[in-house]
Every structure is written in structure tokens, then in C-alpha cells.
């Protein structure tokens, strides 16, 4: 009688339980590792895209310098700021305008070239007369956040006593 009751009851089903637990742990670990690697990959691609966008904007700035220098060749009189600005804006009308004003002997050019959705490359360049040894003086060449709309300020009303 007692022999019939011998044998551990936990033997049946214990292995299955253990297997299920192991498989669950392994699957979760693998899925987490894959998810983390995919997130890393997306971040790397975003970084690469941002760097490419910066250098594209940088190249546009350099092209602007070349064109502006061509419009004021050696022996020619200083062009009017407005005319230069109009010529440059027409040549580089990719979502930004170029401003030019006469300053001292040269011309001060400014532009905000879009880099990405929320960033611009802000340029302030001083073009010297052709006879000067250093033609360009870079006063600003900086990536800045793009200006938000004025209406954004309305989201944070501050109580004034």
C-alpha cells in the first residue's frame, strides 16, 4: 500500500515549468538585446544625417562666399548692398535670404541657412575690397536653434502681480 504512494509528485510537471521559465528568460533577453541594438542603430543614423546636413549647409555658405567675391572683382567699385543681396538671394534661393549692407570699406553679409528642421547655420561675413590680402573676415559661423513663432510664447503665460 505504502509502496504505491512512493515517488515524488513534483517530478511530473517540474521539468516543464523549469523549461518554460528558461525559455521566457532567454526570449526576453534576446528581444531586449535586439531592441537596444536597433535603437543604437537608429541613433547612429540620426547622427550621420545631422552631420551630413551640417556640411551641406556649410557648403552653401562657402558657395555664397565664392559668389559674393565674384560679384566684386578686382578693379570694380563696391556694389550696393541691396543689389548684392538680391543677386545672392536669387542664386541661393533655398529657403533663406541673404542680407548685405555697406560697412566701412567693405560689405557685411548675413544669412541663416537651414540645417535641419529646428536648426540654422547663422553666418555673418565681412567682405573686404579685392586689394586687401585677406578677402573674407568670418564674424559668425554658428549653428543655432531656429527661431520659434512668436505665438509659442503664449503657451507659458506668467502671472504678473
Amino acid at each position: 500500500m505504502s509502496q504505491a504512494k512512493q515517488g515524488p509528485l513534483y517530478g511530473i510537471g517540474g521539468v516543464t515549468l523549469l523549461t518554460v521559465l528558461l525559455v521566457l528568460c532567454l526570449t526576453m533577453f534576446a528581444v531586449l538585446a535586439l531592441s537596444s541594438a536597433q535603437a543604437d542603430r537608429r541613433l547612429s543614423e540620426k547622427n550621420a544625417k545631422a552631420v551630413t546636413a551640417y556640411y551641406q549647409a556649410d557648403n552653401q555658405g562657402v558657395a555664397l562666399m565664392e559668389r559674393a567675391a565674384e560679384l566684386w572683382p578686382a578693379g570694380a567699385a563696391r556694389p550696393a548692398g541691396e543689389i548684392l543681396a538680391k543677386e545672392l538671394s536669387a542664386a541661393f534661393a533655398a529657403g533663406y535670404t541673404v542680407n548685405a549692407v555697406e560697412a566701412d570699406e567693405g560689405l557685411l553679409l548675413s544669412a541663416a541657412i537651414p540645417v535641419q528642421e529646428n536648426q540654422v547655420l547663422r553666418l555673418a561675413l565681412y567682405l573686404q575690397p579685392p586689394e586687401k590680402p585677406q578677402r573674407w573676415e568670418i564674424r559668425q559661423w554658428q549653428v543655432e536653434p531656429a527661431l520659434q513663432d512668436e505665438s509659442d510664447a503664449a503657451f507659458l503665460p506668467v502671472w504678473q502681480p
Binding site: 532567454l26 533577453f29 538585446a33 535586439l34 541594438a37 543604437d40 542603430r41 547612429s44
Partner: peptide, 18 residues
Amino acid sequence: CAGLLVRAYRLSKESGSL
């Protein structure tokens, strides 16, 4: 799961290289 882990390793290596 081994296949998933290998893929995760490859993706991780690629993003490091990039």
C-alpha cells in the same frame, strides 16, 4: 533566440562602425 542575439550583435557592430 540565438538568431536574434546574432542579429543584435551585428546591428551593434554596424552602428559602432557608423
